[in-house]
Design a protein around this nucleic acid. Structure first.
Length: 399
DNA sequence: TCTGGGGTCCTAGGACCC
DNA sequence: TCTGGGGTCCTAGGACCC
């Protein structure tokens, strides 16, 4: 049977967090709105198109955003709600095709080859997906349609907001080559600088750079990636999402901290949060990493591989404590701390392999169970729990 | 303006082994 | 005796994405 020439879709929600907030508060519609951190050190996570008109961008400090757009409404981000709406959007997409590859909370690749018999063209499928998301979830989505993932993703970007763009098979280079190289996946600030030194501004320029030269400047993997994409060569199929590789928790303090006890309590709290999420995902991990950002923004990591995978608060904390000792933090002001557990493996497999940990596991499993029923905050380590009668005011100021 | 939080992947150097 | 070559694992840092 004849196939679609452009079976790959990239579906991307338009300013997703803002649109979710507008679902819950219609007063935000039509206004310049941004979702982000509302604390002293907050940055913008998502900006409405009205706000973008003033130059407000994601990752921009909130102070700068307000300076550019004095009427900006900044809404504190509410992550559980975004996850909920995201799941609804993915359900809608899966009602069209089982081949859905989520690449973040608000975008996915779809392979619609199987819909050939049900729709006369890819455009009719794209229109149907867009209106289904609009009707059933209530938010706008843009769709890019192409022969490859890379071109489909760029097409959806150019379709925004609330649009659709198909790049017909055979016209990929016409579409790609005039575009700025910064639009490419994998070209950030550093690579842009390197490429500019080579006289490369557009994707077309990039396609003309000798491979050896490119490889010397950006490294072997990046060079292969860039060279193929600039020629619209991208054989990657749409497939099920890959398993999670790490789970982390980090936080920036509104005021830098340097007190050792406070530092340890914050890290313990993060170990506990990571443990709760590992349990929920039924995984454990071999590598524990501590991340420290000092007041001058220099950032270090210290990590340690454990022969046995860890998953419970006490196990993670045991390693994290050692890492704090190795991080050289004495006397330095810290703005951010983070804990991550990586090299994840299935938790059930770990339990079968490990003997002698039954008692600790039993206690930890009881904790997981209570958390499952009463919420993540229902059980917390004594050291980070509020202590009645002690120093309440300071603790409140800390949080 | 003063820089979030969740991730993924790559590179490079040193340890260690044969 | 004064120096090999390849492979793998671990760690740290950094670029990048949304």
């Amino acid at each position: 049977m004849e196939q679609f020439a452009e079976p790959i879709f990239h579906v991307d929600m338009d300013s997703f967090f803002v649109e979710v907030e507008r679902l819950d508060d219609a007063a935000l519609i039509g206004k310049p709105v941004a979702v982000g951190g509302t604390g002293r050190r907050g940055v913008i996570a998502s900006a409405s198109y009205e706000a973008r008109a003033y130059g407000v961008r994601s990752a921009m400090p909130v102070g700068e955003a307000r300076r550019r757009c004095p009427d900006l409404v900044v809404v504190n981000s509410a992550h559980s709600r975004y996850g909920e709406i995201s799941r609804s959007v993915f359900e809608v997409m899966r009602s069209f095709t089982p081949i859905v590859e989520g690449i973040s909370i608000d975008e996915a690749f779809l392979d619609v080859s199987g819909l050939r018999r049900h729709y006369p063209s890819v455009e009719t499928i794209g229109a149907a997906i867009r209106s289904a998301i609009r009707d059933r979830v209530g938010i706008p989505a843009s769709v890019g349609i192409a022969t490859t993932k890379f071109v489909a993703k760029l097409a959806s970007k150019h379709a925004k907001p609330d649009g659709m763009l198909r790049i017909p098979a055979g016209t990929e280079l016409e579409f790609l080559h005039p575009l700025e190289v910064t639009e490419m996946w994998g070209v950030g600030e550093a690579t842009e600088r390197t490429l500019r030194d080579l006289g490369v501004r557009t994707i077309g320029d990039l396609a003309g750079v000798p491979f050896g030269l490119l490889e010397r400047r950006v490294g072997s993997a990046a060079a292969r990636h860039l060279a193929s994409l600039a020629r619209a060569e991208d054989p990657r199929p749409v497939e099920g999402g890959s398993p999670t590789r790490s789970i982390s928790s980090e936080g920036t303090f509104s005021v830098d901290i340097d007190d050792r006890d406070r530092i340890e309590r914050e890290v313990l709290r993060m170990c506990d949060q990571v443990a709760a999420r590992l349990a929920k995902a039924h995984v454990a991990g071999h590598v524990v990493t501590l991340k420290v950002r000092f007041s001058d923004f220099t950032t270090i990591t210290r990590s340690s591989r454990r022969a046995e995978a860890v998953s419970h608060t006490a196990e993670i904390w045991e390693t994290a404590g050692e890492l704090i000792g190795r991080a050289g933090i004495a006397g330095r002001s810290i703005r951010l701390l983070g804990i991550s557990v990586g090299d994840l493996v299935d938790a059930a497999a770990v339990r079968q392999l490990s003997f002698g940990h039954e008692r600790r596991d039993a206690a930890a499993e009881a904790v997981d169970e209570v958390r499952e029923r009463f919420g993540p905050g229902s059980v917390i380590p004594a050291r980070i729990a509020p202590q009645p009668g002690i120093d309440r005011s300071r603790r409140r100021a800390d949080s």
